[in-house]
């Protein structure tokens, strides 16, 4: 039951920044509400003020720049799914966002919300991290851009200061990459990932017919206190002289070892670790790098 809280509805980003610079009570932003309202129901005391930013148009824009796409933190998942830029170049993001919750949830939940909630299982987070996304954090007197990977410090924990808000997600443009996202859940839809993996990869064929990895980014979800990059597996594949099935198999083993999962009500640690490798293998296969 929701009770004992108040809602502030600033009409602009500046007003929002002013409010959070001066607020003393514990607060949360309300945009889609799909996480915060559930938490408030479970734990009515955890927040006294909701700051409704759902009507702030500055947060709901998608802009294309020379080398980046900039997505407002208040952009809804459904909007991403309808955007041709993303459909064409960020398949991994589209796959992740399309799997979040249900149509109802995707219609209202936002990308910034999924990031701010900082769940290690956050599906869009894994996909964005595989694209080296950055985010903009603003306060009344500062504006910093950090790597998404550096934003999280633990489950539900981030470097966001009390007077800061996530305003933008900055996606570098990716050309010549293939990408994908996959997860295992307790059921096929409307589920929280028990393991997820995202991949962005660029491969070229040498004159002798062998393959070389130009660039690769692998993110793993729900297997550590935050979404993580599988740097070991990435490094191995970047350095491998011959990118073939045997190398992929070895990278999968490395990815499994990089996971630091726990056992909880959804799955167990051993299975989660092993599945990191399985998902990575499936993704490499699915994006069809040897084409």
């Amino acid at each position: 039951m929701l009770r004992n809280f108040k809602v502030l509805t600033p009409s602009s980003l500046n007003e929002t920044l002013y409010i959070i610079n001066n607020i003393e009570q514990p607060y949360r932003f309300l945009c889609g509400g799909t996480d915060v309202l559930v938490r408030m129901k479970d734990n009515p005391g955890f927040v006294k003020v909701l700051i409704d930013i759902s009507k702030i148009s500055e947060l709901a824009k998608i802009e294309e720049h020379k080398s980046t796409f900039v997505i407002g933190a208040g952009v809804r998942h459904e909007t991403i799914l309808g955007c041709s830029h993303f459909i064409d170049n960020y398949n991994g993001l589209i796959e992740a966002v399309a799997a979040i919750g249900s149509p109802q949830i995707r219609a209202i939940a936002t990308l910034g919300g999924n990031i701010g909630n900082a769940s290690p299982a956050g599906d869009s987070i894994a996909a964005l991290m595989a694209f080296d996304a950055e985010i903009e954090l603003r306060s009344i007197d500062s504006n910093r851009i950090i790597r998404l990977e550096d934003f999280f410090t633990g489950p539900g924990k981030t470097v966001l200061k009390n007077n800061e808000i996530i305003t933008k997600i900055i996606l570098p443009k990716f050309e010549g990459y293939k990408s994908g996202w996959k997860r295992l859940g307790q059921r096929r839809a409307l589920t929280i990932s028990k393991v997820s993996a995202a991949l962005a990869i660029s491969v070229s064929k040498r004159p002798n017919g062998s393959f070389k990895v130009n660039d690769i980014k692998i993110a793993l979800g729900a297997v550590a206190p935050t979404v993580i990059r599988a740097r070991g597996a990435e490094k191995f594949l970047l350095e491998t002289p011959n990118f073939n099935r045997a190398a992929i198999e070895q990278a999968c083993v490395l990815a499994s070892k990089e996971a630091r999962p726990i056992t909880d009500v959804r799955s167990n640690a051993e299975y989660r670790s092993e599945m990191c490798g399985v998902l990575l293998g499936d993704l490499i296969e699915r994006v069809n790098v040897f084409e």
Partner: peptide
Amino acid sequence: IKTLGLSTYVIPTTRD
């Protein structure tokens, strides 16, 4: 009981 919600006590959807 640790599975006191519909996100942890999971039943099939039409997809399953």
